[in-house]
């Protein structure tokens, strides 16, 4: 019985390792080739770099090329800005919804629940018109405003499930001590830290990787995001494979790193947000 169980476990591991290789293999192939000379990229794409084929030229050219660093900064400003605003708005709204339970609160919560599934990209014609009207085209702010509008529903719903777990004792104690509602909110906030991490994690991912809105709102060289920059690099410099592959690797690093560090929060955010 025990032997049979162990062989079953082994079989399961075997299947999982197959899937793991399928998921990570293509990424590793690209990473390997980012350290090779152009000749080596094409003569032996699956070979590891050796002393003859190893080079960092691709990375050098990718970083020095055009706006790479500028694009990196743009993406960071936009992603961090949108995420902070989303977290702040979501926490406030979720606190309000769980604390002042009225019919209106249910309606507002329902609105945000529907909002999670809303295909906002279909409103792009009007979003573009709005940004032109407010002279926000080619600004970081234009993207931040749109991303917060898109991200806030999921953020609110996630935070509501978190605020619901906070016991009333602490809030009552704060109120008896004479804290106003906003103070009480701030006192409770540390208790929902895991929720905040989940919202931040799940908000960041699609924003960093978005192609659609940067393509429409921030095509100017000064405000271009990393994802859009790489997309245009793929289109233009098809002969400089070294720099191209290196820039893909550099573009993927931040989120892979963030995700491996915060994978628990990511997964919590995903399953709590959509699963319920």
């Amino acid at each position: 019985m025990k032997v049979q169980n162990q062989s079953k476990n082994l079989l399961v591991h075997f299947v999982m390792i197959f899937f793991v290789l399928l998921a990570i293999g293509p990424i590793l192939v690209i990473v390997i080739n980012s350290f090779k000379t152009t000749d080596a990229i094409f003569s032996g794409p699956l070979k590891l770099p050796d002393s003859a084929t190893f080079t960092l030229d691709g990375f050098k050219r990718a970083i020095l090329n055009g706006n790479f660093i500028g694009n990196y900064i743009n993406s960071t400003v936009i992603t961090v800005g949108s995420t902070i605003l989303t977290v702040v708005c979501s926490c406030l709204a979720a606190y309000g919804i769980t604390e002042f339970t009225t019919k209106l609160a249910t309606v507002i919560a329902g609105l945000f629940t529907i909002g999670i599934m809303l295909p906002v990209t279909l409103g792009t014609v009007v979003i573009l018109k709005m940004m032109v009207r407010f002279h926000l085209l080619n600004t970081h702010l234009s993207l931040i405003l749109v991303y917060v509008g898109i991200s806030v529903p999921l953020g609110v719903i996630l935070m509501v499930t978190n605020f619901k777990t906070v016991s009333n004792d602490l809030k009552e104690a704060a109120r008896i001590d004479g804290a106003n509602e906003f103070r009480t909110f701030l006192i409770v906030l540390p208790l929902v830290k895991p929720g905040i991490a989940a919202v931040a994690a799940i908000t960041m991912l699609p924003i960093w990787n978005d192609l659609w809105f940067p393509l429409i709102l921030t095509t100017g060289p000064k405000t271009q995001t990393l994802t859009l920059g790489i997309q245009q690099f793929v289109g233009v410099h098809t002969n400089d494979w070294q720099a191209l592959i290196a820039s893909l690797v550099l573009g993927a690093i931040p989120l892979i790193l963030l995700f491996t560090l915060f994978s628990k929060q990511f997964i919590k955010g995903l399953s709590d947000g959509y699963g319920k």
Partner: peptide, 9 residues
Amino acid sequence: IPSTLSVVI
């Protein structure tokens, strides 16, 4: 991990 990559990549 593949879900954290951009479609461009």
